[in-house]
């Protein structure tokens, strides 16, 4: 299985060097070569399992506001904040995506 590592790195929002991309391509192809075996399993009519609480499913909380962490304590963890907001680089400088 060939894999377009540049595209996957882009989707993953990971900056990788040329060397890292090459190693990554080799590693992922080796892993996928093992996983290919799954294609042979008969799964027609089988429902997928996405969580471990199935079949009960998840419990829903009543939609009542409760006290949580303070805004100040969370903002304190931010690498760059100003007047109660997180500061991030401008989108414009990136050009069109």
């Amino acid at each position: 299985m060939k894999i377009d590592v540049r595209r996957v790195a882009d989707l993953s929002k990971l900056r990788l060097t040329e060397d890292e991309l090459l190693t990554m391509e080799k590693d992922l192809e080796m892993i996928l070569a093992h996983i290919e075996r799954l294609a042979a399993v008969q799964v027609e009519g089988v429902e997928p399992t996405f969580g471990s609480r199935e079949p009960e499913g998840l419990r829903l909380e009543p939609d009542d506001p409760k006290p949580g962490l303070s805004r100040a304590s969370l903002l304190e963890l931010g690498p760059s904040t100003q007047e109660g907001y997180y500061v991030v680089p401008a989108r414009e400088s990136e050009g069109r995506e």
């Binding site: 990971l14 931010g78 690498p79 760059s80 991030v88």
Partner: peptide, 22 residues
Amino acid sequence: GVRYGLSKRGKGYLDMYRETRG
């Protein structure tokens, strides 16, 4: 790179994600 942990700032916000996570 916005709310906690390591943050590497590049020229735009996408750069920030890629550099921080890379």
